[in-house]
Simulated scan of single mutants.
Amino acid sequence: MVRLRQCLCNLDDAAAGKLDKKQAVINILEEMKKYSYQFSIDERDSDLYAWVEELACYSPIMHIQQTDGITSPHSPFTKKNNEKGIVEGKKLLEAIAASYEKEEKGMPPKTDKIVMALELFASNTEHPHEIKNNMRETREYWKQYIPEDGVRLDQLLERL
């Protein structure tokens, strides 16, 4: 996080005319090279579904929230949030299934059960009625894909 702040300061300084733009970019690239482990250049690192395909089969619990892919506000799955959100029920279940098709050496045993838990945050300015409606809408959204607890993944995918 410190490195990111330094890079952003370089950009701020360039925008304010305190630093040449070319030099700001050079500084950022040098910082990224020096601390490459803190910067990702692989698009898959920021791809939700790539992560799920790689790791879901090893995780006995997944916390589910709607996100725009930039911030992590733990939004409910409402029509409004889903329009700009990147988490889609069918795609998520397909990515989980894909994770079970892979064989990785050195990984723990694959879990035979995944609990998907909604992890939603509400603003302290939201009215309780609004929070309940968002939760209700979220439940209805996910019921399309997971109509009841305990259904096997292959059975869920057959229904889609």
Rank of each mutant, 00 (worst) to 15 (best):
L4K: 13
R5N: 04
R5H: 07
C7H: 02
L11Y: 08
L11M: 12
L11V: 14
L11T: 04
L11W: 06
D12Y: 10
D12C: 10
D13Q: 12
A14M: 03
A14Q: 14
A14T: 07
G17E: 05
L19F: 04
L19H: 13
L19V: 02
D20N: 15
D20G: 08
Q23S: 12
V25N: 10
I26N: 11
N27Q: 08
I28M: 14
K33F: 00
Y35R: 14
I41P: 01
E43K: 14
R44D: 10
S46L: 09
L48K: 04
A50E: 13
V52P: 08
V52Y: 09
E53T: 02
E53P: 01
E54T: 10
Y58M: 09
S59V: 10
M62H: 08
H63S: 01
Q66S: 07
T67Q: 01
D68F: 01
D68P: 03
G69V: 06
T71L: 02
P73R: 04
P73H: 06
H74T: 00
S75G: 03
P76K: 04
P76L: 02
P76Q: 03
F77E: 06
F77Q: 09
T78K: 07
K79T: 02
N81T: 05
N81D: 14
N81W: 01
K84P: 05
K84V: 14
G85I: 02
G85N: 02
V87W: 02
E88M: 08
E88D: 15
G89C: 05
G89L: 07
K91H: 05
L93D: 08
L93I: 03
L93H: 07
E94P: 01
A97V: 04
A97N: 15
Y100D: 03
E101F: 02
K102N: 09
E103L: 09
E104Q: 13
K105S: 09
M107N: 06
M107R: 15
M107W: 11
P108D: 12
T111M: 06
D112L: 02
K113F: 05
K113T: 15
K113A: 15
M116N: 07
M116T: 09
A117N: 13
A117F: 08
L118R: 05
L120F: 11
F121V: 00
F121M: 11
S123K: 06
N124P: 10
T125W: 09
T125N: 13
T125S: 11
E126T: 14
P128C: 00
H129N: 08
I131A: 02
N133V: 13
M135N: 10
R136S: 13
T138Y: 03
T138Q: 07
R139I: 13
K143F: 12
K143E: 15
Q144T: 15
Q144H: 14
Q144Y: 00
Y145M: 06
I146Q: 08
P147M: 04
P147V: 11
G150I: 12
D154Q: 15
D154L: 05
Q155P: 00
L160W: 10
